[in-house]
Design a protein around this nucleic acid. Structure first.
Length: 221
DNA sequence: CGGTTTTGACCCGCGC
DNA sequence: GCGCGGGTCAAAACCG
C-alpha cells in the first residue's frame, strides 16, 4: 500500500474531485445485536460497499483538516478504503478515536464503524453541492427514525430499479437539509439513506427518545 | 382545518 | 440541439 495522504490527493486530483467540500465522515455503531446506529430505532445489521466497486486503496491517512470534524472528535482522520463505481466514489473512513468510544458513563466501550460517503465526480466549473453522505441499513421500513422531522416532497422511479426513490426535506423552518431514501436493486432488504446539507437545529423528537436524539445530535456535524 | 403524502408536470444537467 | 434521467414543484388527495 502506498502511503496515504499523497496517494489519495493525487487520486482525487486525477479524477477532478473536490475532496474538501464533498467528503464527510459518518460514524455508526456496528454492534449487530443490540445497539442502534446513531440513535436510529432499528439495529444496523450490516454495512458493505455498493457493488460492483473497485478498491483503490486501503488504510490510508486522509488529507482532511481536523478542524472540519466535530470538536469532540479529536483523533486523526483515517480513510479505511476508497472505492469506485462507474461515476461515484465511496469513501469509508472515520476518526481514530471513533473506533472505540463510550456512549455514556458506565457503558462498555462500543466499537464504531464508519459509513460510506458518496462523492460524485465533479468538473471544475460545476457548482458545488452541499456535502452529502449516505449509509446502508438492513431494514423493513424505508424511513429510519433519525430524530428529525421530514416531509416528503417527491418520489421517483429510478431507471433499472423496481423500487421508487423518495425525497424528503427537513420540516424545520430555514433548515434546508434533504434526505433521499431508496432500496438497493439487487437486495431490496437494504435501505440506502442519503443526507444532503447540515441541520441548523437539534433533533426534535418525542420525550421518550430525547436522549437518543441528543446523542444523535452529537454525532451530526 | 392544517399538515403530510401523492403524483404528474416541469426543470435542468449531461451525454451524444 | 435533442433526448434522457434525476430532482423538484405544486395541486389535489388524504388523514388525524
Amino acid at each position: 500500500m502506498a502511503s496515504g495522504a499523497s496517494l489519495n490527493q493525487s487520486l482525487f486530483e486525477e479524477q477532478e474531485m473536490i475532496i474538501s467540500s464533498q467528503l464527510g465522515i459518518f460514524p455508526f455503531h456496528t454492534n449487530m445485536s443490540s445497539s442502534f446506529p446513531l440513535g436510529f430505532n432499528q439495529p444496523l445489521k450490516t454495512l458493505s460497499p455498493p457493488s460492483p466497486l473497485t478498491t483503490l486503496s486501503d488504510h490510508s491517512t486522509l488529507t482532511k483538516q481536523k478542524e472540519d470534524f466535530p470538536p469532540h472528535f479529536s483523533g486523526l482522520p483515517q480513510l479505511l478504503s476508497l472505492q469506485r463505481s462507474a461515476s461515484n466514489y465511496w469513501a469509508w473512513g472515520g476518526l481514530s478515536d471513533c473506533m472505540s468510544m463510550k456512549r455514556s458513563e458506565g457503558d462498555d466501550h462500543q466499537h464504531l464503524g464508519v459509513a460510506a460517503v458518496k462523492m460524485k465526480k465533479i468538473k471544475a466549473r460545476r457548482k458545488v453541492r452541499e456535502p452529502r453522505f449516505c449509509f446502508k441499513t438492513m431494514s423493513d421500513v424505508d424511513v429510519l427514525d433519525d430524530g428529525y422531522k421530514w416531509r416528503k416532497y417527491g418520489q421517483k422511479v429510478v431507471k433499472n430499479t423496481q423500487h421508487p426513490r423518495s425525497y424528503y426535506r427537513c420540516t424545520q423552518d430555514n433548515c434546508r437539509v434533504k434526505k433521499r431514501v431508496e432500496r438497493l436493486a439487487d437486495d431490496p432488504r437494504m435501505v440506502i439513506t442519503s443526507y444532503e446539507g447540515r441541520h441548523i437545529h437539534s433533533p426534535s423528537h418525542d420525550e421518550e427518545d430525547s436522549q437518543a436524539a441528543s446523542q444523535l445530535g452529537n454525532f451530526f456535524w
